[in-house]
Structures are given as structure tokens and as C-alpha cells.
Amino acid sequence: TGIVNVSSSLNVRSSASTSSKVIGSLSGNTKVTIVGEEGAFYKIEYKGSHGYVAAEYI
């Protein structure tokens, strides 16, 4: 489990890349469940599926 540490919002992406499609966003202080790690990204549970967020902001 981690907490989103941004002042505005954090993009949730379809894969572990900044060039991948943005599938949603999370606001600051949102609690997320981390299920894996790929490079600089965490794989998280997101809306019944999975998404990827930049690990530096969690």
C-alpha cells in the first residue's frame, strides 16, 4: 500500500512507460494497493484492473 504524493493529480497509465496511454488519474493523498514494480513504475490495483504510476510519486 502506498499514498499518492502529489499536489494536483497523478496519471495512471496502461503500461510502465511515460509514452503509454493515460487511463485515468489519482488525486494527492489517495491510498493505492501496489501489486508489482517495473522499473520506475509501480503496478497498482485500479478500477477492478491494473494500472501503472510513477514510483517517485508514491
Rank of each mutant, 00 (worst) to 15 (best):
T1K: 09
T1F: 15
T1I: 14
G2R: 08
G2Y: 09
G2V: 08
G2I: 08
G2D: 04
G2M: 08
I3S: 06
I3K: 07
I3M: 08
V4M: 05
V4F: 05
V4A: 05
N5Q: 08
N5D: 06
N5M: 13
V6G: 10
V6Q: 07
S7D: 10
S7H: 12
S7G: 11
S8A: 10
S8P: 11
S8D: 11
S8K: 12
S8N: 10
S8W: 15
S9A: 11
S9D: 08
S9Y: 13
S9T: 12
L10D: 01
L10K: 02
L10V: 15
L10S: 03
L10R: 03
N11T: 13
N11R: 13
N11P: 15
N11K: 14
N11I: 15
V12L: 03
V12K: 01
V12M: 02
V12F: 02
V12P: 01
V12H: 01
V12S: 01
V12C: 04
R13W: 15
R13I: 06
R13K: 06
R13V: 08
R13C: 09
R13N: 08
S14Y: 11
S14R: 11
S14D: 11
S14C: 13
S14T: 08
S14E: 15
S14A: 15
S15V: 06
S15D: 09
S15H: 14
A16W: 04
A16V: 05
A16E: 02
S17V: 05
S17N: 11
S17I: 06
T18S: 13
T18Q: 12
T18F: 15
T18M: 14
S19E: 12
S19D: 13
S19M: 12
S19I: 09
S19A: 11
S19L: 12
S19Y: 10
S20P: 01
S20H: 04
S20I: 02
K21A: 12
K21P: 14
K21W: 08
K21S: 11
K21L: 11
K21Q: 11
K21V: 10
K21N: 10
V22A: 05
V22P: 04
V22G: 03
V22R: 05
V22T: 06
I23A: 02
I23V: 07
I23Q: 02
I23H: 01
I23L: 09
I23E: 01
G24R: 02
G24I: 04
G24V: 03
G24H: 02
G24F: 07
G24M: 05
S25F: 13
S25E: 10
S25K: 14
L26M: 05
L26A: 02
L26T: 02
L26Y: 02
L26I: 12
L26P: 00
S27K: 14
S27N: 11
S27R: 14
S27C: 15
G28Y: 14
G28I: 10
G28W: 13
G28E: 08
G28S: 12
G28N: 14
N29L: 11
N29C: 15
T30E: 11
T30H: 07
T30V: 09
T30S: 12
T30N: 05
T30D: 10
K31I: 14
K31Q: 12
K31D: 05
K31F: 12
V32W: 03
V32G: 02
V32I: 08
V32P: 01
V32N: 00
V32M: 03
V32S: 00
T33F: 10
T33M: 10
T33G: 03
T33A: 07
I34D: 00
I34E: 00
I34F: 03
I34N: 01
V35K: 05
V35P: 01
V35D: 02
V35A: 05
V35L: 14
G36H: 06
G36A: 10
G36S: 08
G36C: 08
G36M: 06
G36P: 01
G36L: 05
E37R: 15
E37H: 14
E37K: 15
E37F: 14
E38R: 06
E38Y: 11
E38D: 09
E38P: 02
E38C: 14
G39A: 06
G39D: 06
G39P: 02
G39W: 04
A40C: 13
A40G: 14
A40F: 08
A40P: 10
A40K: 11
F41V: 02
F41C: 04
F41H: 03
Y42T: 03
Y42R: 02
Y42F: 09
Y42H: 02
K43C: 09
K43T: 03
K43Q: 07
K43R: 09
K43E: 05
K43V: 10
I44T: 00
I44M: 02
I44V: 05
I44E: 00
I44F: 01
I44K: 00
I44W: 01
I44S: 00
I44N: 01
E45A: 09
E45Q: 09
E45S: 07
E45G: 04
E45Y: 09
E45F: 08
Y46G: 00
Y46D: 00
Y46P: 00
Y46F: 13
Y46M: 02
K47N: 13
K47I: 06
K47A: 11
K47T: 04
K47L: 12
G48E: 07
G48P: 03
G48R: 05
G48S: 07
G48L: 06
G48H: 06
S49F: 10
S49D: 08
H50Y: 15
H50P: 04
H50R: 04
H50A: 07
H50K: 05
G51I: 03
G51A: 10
G51R: 02
G51C: 03
G51F: 04
Y52E: 00
Y52F: 10
Y52P: 00
Y52A: 00
Y52H: 01
V53Y: 02
V53R: 00
V53K: 00
V53E: 00
V53L: 03
V53G: 02
V53N: 01
A54N: 09
A54E: 15
A55F: 07
A55P: 02
A55C: 11
A55E: 04
A55Y: 06
E56V: 12
E56M: 13
E56Q: 13
E56L: 11
E56R: 14
E56F: 09
E56C: 13
E56P: 05
Y57L: 07
I58A: 01
I58T: 02
I58D: 01
